[in-house]
Amino acid sequence: MYKILISGYYGFNNIGDESILRAVVDNLQDRLEDIEITVLSQDPVSTAEKYGVKSASRKSMKSIVKAVKRCDLLVSGGGSLLQDVTSKKSILYYLIIMWLAQLFRKKIFIYSQGIGPINSNLNRRLTARTLSKVSGIVVRDEASKEFLAEIGVDPQRVEVTADPVLRIKPVPLIIGQEILRKEGIQIDRDRLTVGFAIRERKTDSEFVDELCIAIDRLVTEQKAQIVLIPFHYSEDVGVIEELEKRLGDKVCSIKHKYLTNEMLSIIGNMDLLVGVRLHALIHSAIMNVPMIGISYDPKINSFMKSIGMKAMCSIYDFNNQDFMEEFNKTIQHREVIKNRVQEKLVHLTKALDTNEEMIKKIMEK
């Protein structure tokens, strides 16, 4: 039996990263034979139960060392693990796990990661040196490949695919309808239902001010029904509560945590999704829901480009007038947009086969 250890940002109730793990585990199990999967997780018991895998604590060095020693292959990814913008320390954490694998002469595979931004020169050198010694590198977009070349990784060793979550299949809408009812949200099919998946830690920012005006205009001018959806629950609940405080009964929100399939179905019941969270936008693409992307990070721009669209703006230059124009344009052309996105998804999901094909070759060696 071939033992695979997966390292990533798992067990933190971030629906985006949990969706990645669901996709990676399913893809490995579907396409590779006689494997045993172990996941490093913040909540090993929950991860083992949810995904049917073995799990070890990502915060215990003793557990990490033990897990690395017993594996045959370390899979790092997906997600944006190798970057130092959101945290200057987390990149070192993921590199240290790879260094341990190298120390114990284990093979390492980078699985459809988004790489960068990495601002520290030291972190750039460490990343380049580490990745130059791994068995295979697959990134989720061209920007990541270009960045790796910039810091000194041979671009000929880097394959480009897509975010692994894109391979998750659409789910029935009835699941989300039942959840919305339990949350006290009654969808009115005579009105447009607009979901908002917002990432913003500063609740007094100009972005939040303009967002409130935009939502108020959607309700008053378009008679829209607004649903606020937390994708990283612990981080997103703050801005959701701020929007509820300012807008009152003009908005409703999801109050509980949900699994990947449940969140997919919730998104599927929207007529349009406004997303700052990358995986909210990816969920929209999977469920064939028109979207408006607002960027806080280059990964948003890269994803929107990959599906033939553009992010409307960033959180730093968002204004309600531009938003309303984009909203009206998106609703007017929604069928064209949906068809274009689905065509792009066919090519992107096929490209994801590269991960398992490369891992299979590594296993055979």
Rank of each mutant, 00 (worst) to 15 (best):
K3G: 03
G8L: 08
Y9T: 11
G11T: 04
F12Y: 15
N13V: 09
D17R: 09
I20W: 08
I20D: 08
V24S: 02
V25T: 06
V25E: 03
D30G: 00
I35F: 03
E36I: 14
V39E: 09
V39H: 12
Q42N: 15
T47Q: 04
G52C: 08
S57C: 13
R58E: 01
K59A: 04
K59I: 14
I64L: 12
I64W: 07
V65I: 15
V68M: 05
L74C: 07
V75I: 15
G79K: 01
G79N: 02
L81S: 06
Q83V: 08
K88E: 14
K88I: 13
L92P: 00
L92S: 11
I97C: 03
W99Y: 13
W99H: 13
F104P: 07
R105H: 15
K106H: 03
I108C: 10
I108R: 00
Y111P: 03
Q113M: 14
G114D: 01
L122E: 11
R124L: 08
R124N: 13
L126D: 12
T130G: 04
V138M: 04
V139L: 10
V139T: 11
R140M: 00
E142L: 13
A143S: 14
V160L: 11
D163I: 02
V165C: 06
L166K: 03
R167H: 05
P170Y: 08
P172L: 02
I175Y: 03
Q177H: 11
L180A: 06
R181L: 15
Q186G: 06
Q186M: 13
D190V: 01
V194G: 02
A197W: 05
S205Q: 10
L211Q: 14
L211H: 12
L211I: 12
I213Q: 13
A214C: 05
A214G: 06
L218S: 04
A224F: 05
S234Y: 12
I240A: 04
E242D: 11
E242Q: 15
L247Y: 02
K250L: 12
V251Y: 05
I254Y: 07
I254G: 08
H256D: 09
K257A: 02
L259N: 15
S265P: 01
V274H: 09
V276A: 00
V276H: 01
H279Y: 14
H279P: 06
A285D: 10
N288E: 12
V289M: 04
P290T: 07
I292C: 10
G293T: 05
D297M: 02
D297H: 04
D297T: 03
K299Y: 07
K299H: 07
I300K: 01
N301Q: 11
N301E: 15
M304F: 10
S306T: 10
G308Q: 05
M312R: 04
S314E: 13
S314N: 14
I315Q: 13
N319P: 06
E325M: 08
E325I: 10
N328L: 14
T330N: 08
I331L: 06
Q332K: 15
H333N: 15
E335V: 02
E335K: 12
K338V: 09
L345G: 00
H347E: 15
T349L: 00
K350F: 10
A351L: 12
D353T: 13
T354L: 07
E357A: 01
K365C: 11
